[in-house]
Amino acid sequence: MEDSFINTVVKLHKTKNWRDIIQNYHDHPERNKLLWVYPSEENLDFLKKSLADLKCDNILSIGCGSGLLEWIIGEATGFPLKGIEVDGVWWQCKYAPPTFIPLLFTSPELDKDTISILQNGGTTALLFCYFNNRPAFENYLNVFSGNVIVIIGPGEGTGVHTDPLPFDDVSNDWTLYKWQEVRSSKDFICIYIRSNNNARNEM
């Protein structure tokens, strides 16, 4: 059966009309078929300014799924963006949802190419959106050489669990720098810096 919601978003993607996607479909009943979080332009401006202030010049998204969020962020902010996924078989099969950015595939144990990207991530912001795998999260952070991570996920009382959660769910190696709610959704964008970084801790 034809999926009009997905087809509409695919058409908007082809014409680079990210604004219509976030303005018109953030509360669509089928929105989670492609994306859990639909940021507002204010959220995207917040992310752009915060990462620029922290001297980041690109974003690497871990577990990016379809890549729709990453494409929106890239179009809105101008930051070069890559997405990593572990299940290459699924995302390349005919039953998978459409993808909106080229995906880099790795194994759950991290292959040498992914490790190299992480180890050379000095100006990279590492993004986790609705991530739900604590051991994998720790593995990525253990290799990552950069100073900035972004966690997007649900706040308390939403009935949705992620691992890590956006607040107070990282080691003491990381300090909360800034945060902002996504619209009034009880989802939050939390930006963390390494605790030995000189960037200002601000809420």
Rank of each mutant, 00 (worst) to 15 (best):
G83C: 06
S66K: 12
T77L: 00
E109Y: 09
T106P: 10
L103K: 15
T99M: 03
P98D: 11
I72N: 02
G121N: 07
T114R: 00
P98V: 13
G65C: 04
A76E: 06
E70V: 09
L60M: 10
E75C: 09
G83K: 01
F79I: 02
I72S: 06
I117W: 13
G78V: 02
W71R: 12
T99I: 08
E75W: 06
L103A: 02
S116G: 01
L103E: 02
S61P: 07
V86L: 13
P98Q: 11
W71F: 14
S116I: 03
N58S: 09
I72P: 07
L104A: 11
V89Y: 14
I73R: 06
G121K: 01
G65S: 06
A96M: 07
G121S: 15
V86Q: 11
G78H: 13
I62T: 05
D111Q: 07
E109F: 11
N120W: 07
K94Y: 12
T77H: 11
G67L: 04
C93R: 15
P80V: 01
G88E: 15
I117G: 01
A96F: 01
P80Y: 01
E70L: 02
T106S: 11
Y95A: 13
L69F: 08
D87K: 09
P108M: 08
P108H: 06
P98W: 11
D57N: 13
E75H: 04
F105P: 09
I73A: 05
T106C: 07
G63M: 02
F79S: 11
V89P: 00
K94H: 14
L110N: 01
G83D: 07
D87I: 03
G74M: 13
L104P: 03
G63W: 11
N120S: 14
Q119D: 06
E75A: 12
D111K: 07
D111S: 11
N120D: 15
P98N: 13
L81A: 07
G88L: 03
F105N: 09
